[in-house]
Computed example of a mutant assay.
Amino acid sequence: MKSRRSFIGKSALLAGAALLGKSFQVNGQPAEAPVPLPSLKGRKVMFLFGGWDGHEPTKFRDYMVPWMENEGATVSVYDNLDPYTDKQLMANTDLIVQIFTMSQITQEQEKGLLEAVKNGTGMAGWHGGMCDAFRNNTEYQFMTGGQWVAHPGGVIDYSVQVTDQMDAITSGLSDFNISSEQYYMHVDPNVKVLATTTFSGEHSPWIDGCVMPVTWKKMYGKGRIFYTSLGHNLSHVLMSPNGMTMIKRGIQWASDSKYGPAENWVRPIYKG
């Protein structure tokens, strides 16, 4: 009984640390708590928007850019991908936020983007604006960690499960419901998954019960990558505040790519 009570006590303290972001001790030892998110103050951010209008790139620009500026970032806004070819500009950029669904990228543009991220520039994005942007470019997909392939049923009601309460991006966030596109994706097995969703099989019976990552973070070279499949429309994530909170926190985390320590993890799904 004593060991069971001890276990319950430790679990409660760890849960409190996750929810409150404070330091606790268990048996005199500090319990692990989420690393505080960095500020956007002083960060140089590149916001690129365009591609398919159905994902509302202009509305997201008008919402996200003022928020980042209010947080202290200097934001340069572009409606094309040509900045990716400017080596000096890319080297001086702390964070790239891109929404360019179903678009094409030139070889020179892709090379500039990949090189900058490998060297430490962070990247953050959501939905098809990041992981359904350049369907023919597999190295780009290797960088982002996933590629959209389907959204059975279109806009539907579904739930999102927060699976990592010890990460600062999702700390204190509870599971939530959302009405939007439930993305079925091909996902890199070595991303750090922060939230998932489970398919019901109502629209595609053969995937009934499939658990799919919704939000993740990863590294590409020295660059931090944040992605969430939420965000088909701006109103969808604004009506589900936990979703917008994840996006904003992910942007903060990725913006520290050049300044914070690299986060290394290898979580192979398939055992050798």
Rank of each mutant, 00 (worst) to 15 (best):
T85M: 02
V97S: 11
Q104G: 01
F142K: 12
D82T: 08
H127C: 06
T85Q: 06
F142V: 04
L113F: 01
L89E: 05
Y84Q: 02
W126G: 01
A116M: 03
M90V: 05
I99K: 10
T93P: 11
T121S: 15
N137E: 08
E108M: 13
Q88W: 08
D79A: 15
D82S: 10
L113W: 00
E139D: 04
A73V: 12
T121Q: 12
L89R: 10
D86Q: 10
L114K: 01
G128I: 05
K111R: 11
L89K: 14
Q109P: 11
Y84H: 07
S76M: 14
Q141Y: 07
R135F: 04
R135I: 06
D132A: 10
G128T: 05
N92M: 10
Y140V: 03
G146Y: 10
G128H: 13
L95V: 03
Q107R: 12
G129Q: 03
R135P: 00
V75S: 12
E115F: 04
G112E: 03
M68R: 12
E108P: 09
D132Q: 07
D86P: 07
Q104E: 02
T101S: 11
G125M: 06
D79N: 15
P83E: 09
M68F: 11
G145T: 04
K111M: 01
E110Y: 00
D79Q: 15
N92A: 04
G72I: 07
V75T: 10
Y78E: 06
G122R: 15
A116P: 11
N92L: 03
Q104Y: 00
T138P: 04
G128Y: 14
Y140I: 04
S103P: 09
Q141S: 14
L81R: 06
T85Y: 01
G145I: 11
G122Q: 12
T144M: 05
K111E: 00
E71Y: 08
P83I: 07
Q107L: 12
M90F: 04
C131I: 02
D94W: 02
G145S: 08
I99M: 13
E139M: 02
D86G: 14
G72M: 09
D94P: 13
E110G: 00
G145D: 01
G125Q: 02
E115L: 10
K87H: 14
E115I: 08
Q141E: 03
D82P: 05
T106I: 09
M68G: 11
Y78H: 14
L113V: 04
K87F: 12
Y84M: 09
W126N: 02
Y78M: 12
L89Y: 09
